[in-house]
Design a protein around this nucleic acid. Structure first.
Lengths: 193, 193, 193, 193
DNA sequence: AATGAATGAGGATTCATTCAT
DNA sequence: GATGAATGAATCCTCATTCAT
């Protein structure tokens, strides 16, 4: 029963299913058929909407990245001081929106995808640049010349915590993860005092 | 021109080729044929020696991990103080042995492999535990109760830097990478003084 | 030129081709590709419909066995006396439906398949039980307590004649084959008189 | 430690191993490597002795067939009357020499081999001819003109019992099997009286 | 819009067989 | 005599993708 305006719904279902499948498989070796089945449609239709498996992966990446960006933007908007801004970026990174087993696994795989897919690499690079930029701006008034180094360090630690979460079999505790990164931030702030 | 005692030679060639091939492809989707060809033999022989592609991947992982372990062990042996020990672990992580484009790419893919391969997960878990343990012991006399948090933070940052290096198109500058992580160590040490 | 509702047609083609191919090769070492080609399709499609070579073999077995069963059922329905019933079972076994070079060869191979395939073994066991049961019921009023032995003997002889037919290079003459088995039946009936 | 005069020992080991492997696998799809390993040598040596897998199969067949022939010859030599001679052939067929699970399974597979291997077919044909001939000669004085039919019937039943034994999961009881076939013989003798 | 039908391309794995030692 | 080394050729099976309906 084909309906009008199904396209956005179908696409969203497919994107969600893509992330779930990648998360479940723990790798990009998921078939279009499985994704389509999870999304409740035929693989032919999935191709109709996205053209290729690659395009589906990219769309899923964009989705994950944009959710994360929105989270960060929201947190930054509520921050009232440089210190809060830095904290906001860190905490937004470990919100259940992104810091969920499934998404973490997908995230890791997107890094892998970026190894061979120029567009994926670009997407990830943009996200990283934005993240570091946000951190740098927040840190400048706090640690001065060390801002660059600290921003890069925090960015690296965030991704490292994701990596470890992907490996860990324990629950992904966002608060603990955030605290872990904030420890670095605190150390630098303390030192700068 | 068959010779005797080829097994260790062939296995070593295959392991090296596996790492190179994964590094070049940026993913685990490399064929046994390609690996074998790069190692100068038929895919049948590769199977003869390893039994399966999976086993080859695992052997390659073990190789990378053991090279890294040796590097760390060596660096620790030369350290004369807790501070030097912590520094040794960090610097050993960014030695050209492990911190080379090819190996970094393989490393990332081993994390992916660990998502679906129990043995790979175990291997990686062991490596992480050892790394954190080394850091904790070195840090305890320096930062006391904060040792656990700082050890985990540094471990995460090390892997995060690897992740970023895997993405980066620039050269993988080990010294800069190590300095990046040492910045966190220094901040904590300063604070603890 | 894809059409709808091809599945039953394709499956039937494949089953037929499987039997032919096994018959022609005289062994189960036939490739899915050859079977598929004979059935006029790609091997991928064959896998699509049956999932595996094993499943195709099993389906072919079921087909042969069910054709045979139908033949026996039909013959039994027309029989008017115990004697005719016993005769019916024997003659139905050598009708061109089953007693054709190709099918005889496949039959033999299904016995081999049953050595390593539990489901195949079950299929064959069921067929044998049914055959013996039919014979026993028909024989009871005729030879009394000897019914069991005679039923088993006739069943064995039927399969033995098949085996010899599989070997023979001569034509498979159903009437002669049936007569051969009926000789035993007659001897027992004569004796029981 | 190569020794002189090893050839016949090696060959015998290989033949025995071939039969065992075929019996264990329930099919001809056994590898030369497995056979060689069971015989305690390398597959290369197996090839050295037999030249090919096919030749090994043939040798195994000849071995089985000649053991059986010897058994029949021995039994016939001890028989004192036509009746005893017919009985001897039947009983010799179900002696543990041939009527063992392993050998029965191999036997069945030799019939399959005969479908595609001219030499195997010839071997089996010769054995059948000899068997029928023995039976015919023994039966002539007992059932006159019916000798041909009865001989063929008994021969078929013998092979049929083997076939059923190959399928059966129960123990292969030689005495019961022989009795089964003798039932037919008895019926014909009774009738001829 | 939606899907069943269909396939080409490819990949892991197995194996009989050969050969140098 | 004996074997480890080595491979070409197969074979099953999977999958992204296309197409007619």
């Amino acid at each position: 029963m084909p309906k009008l305006g199904m396209e956005p719904i179908r696409r969203a279902s497919l994107i969600k299913a893509t992330i779930s499948e990648i998360g479940a498989a723990g790798s990009l070796e998921v078939t279009v058929s499985r994704i389509a089945k999870r999304a409740g449609m035929s693989s032919a239709l999935a191709h109709h909407y996205f053209g290729s498996k690659e395009a589906m992966f990219l769309a899923a990446m964009r989705h994950v990245l944009s959710l994360y960006s929105a989270e960060v933007r929201g947190a930054l908007a509520a921050a009232r001081s440089p210190g809060e801004r830095a904290q906001a970026v860190i905490r937004a990174s470990f919100t259940p929106t992104s810091f969920r087993r499934e998404v973490v696994a997908a995230w890791l795989n997107f890094y892998v995808l970026a190894q061979s897919q120029e567009q994926a690499r670009r997407l990830l690079t943009v996200y990283q640049r934005r993240l570091t930029s946000n951190l740098r701006h927040a840190l400048r008034p706090l640690v001065g010349a060390r801002a660059e180094t600290v921003a890069l360090g925090i960015a690296a630690m965030i991704d490292g915590v994701y990596l470890h979460a992907a490996l860990g079999s324990g629950s992904t505790d966002g608060a603990a993860a955030a605290a872990q990164v904030e420890a670095y931030l605190d150390a630098e702030l303390e030192r700068a005092k």
